[in-house]
């Protein structure tokens, strides 16, 4: 099958992770991975982002497939259940909004900038080398640290499940995937009724 331009978007995902290691402000670019799938599902009512453009999925597919890093075992049943998928979506967004709240506190001057990346919502990793100051508020950098934490955490989770199960196991419980599917379901129910 002939490769299309969007089959190479894994390069974007990989570059993103590297850039965030060098200068944390690049983490803002990750918003593309949040906004585009939502716009496609709301505007067009499909999951073209997951199906075609998701660079992270392609990266896992490449590492688990061609690089042979995946055991290619079936996922446990509970992990593909609706309870887990919707539960993880709620948990993920609760943590996301807490991150936004922390960012707000820094913007408001009630908290100082923490130059740390939080992995798996628990482990605070030093990341000061990626901070070179901002021209605007410290909150801009705080959001970058917080957002990069979200992206790195989901990459690590996806990587672990890629090794244990099938390469793109992350797609089964990816919060963006679950959310865009829900949007599509709601949108098409509306049309039918």
């Amino acid at each position: 099958m002939k490769k299309k331009w969007y089959d190479h978007l894994w390069i974007f995902s990989l570059t993103y992770l590297i850039l965030g290691f060098l200068n944390i402000l690049f983490a803002w670019l990750g918003l593309i991975c949040f906004v585009v799938p939502l716009m496609i599902s709301i505007g067009h009512g499909n999951k073209a982002y997951c199906n075609k453009y998701c660079g992270r999925g392609q990266l896992f597919s490449l590492l688990g497939g061609r690089f042979g890093l995946s055991r290619k075992h079936d996922m446990p049943k509970w992990m593909k259940s609706k309870y887990f998928r919707y539960g993880f979506l709620i948990f993920f967004f609760t943590m996301f909004f807490m991150m936004l709240w922390n960012t707000y506190l820094v913007f408001a001057g009630e908290r100082t900038l923490a130059q740390k990346v939080t992995l798996l919502w628990t482990f605070k990793l030093p990341w000061h080398w990626a901070y070179h100051g901002t021209l605007v508020s410290d909150g801009v950098a705080q959001f970058a640290f917080g957002f990069y934490s979200v992206m790195l955490t989901s990459t690590v989770l996806g990587f672990v499940t890629m090794i244990l199960f099938k390469p793109r196991s992350w797609c089964v419980y990816c919060p963006m995937g679950t959310m865009t599917q829900l949007i599509c379901k709601a949108k098409h129910k509306e049309v039918k009724s």
Binding site: K52, S61, R85, R168, C171, T178
Partner: peptide, 9 residues
């Protein structure tokens, strides 16, 4: 149970 990820496509 399909999550519509499109890996199969």
């Amino acid at each position: 149970q399909c999550v519509a990820c499109g890996c199969c496509v």
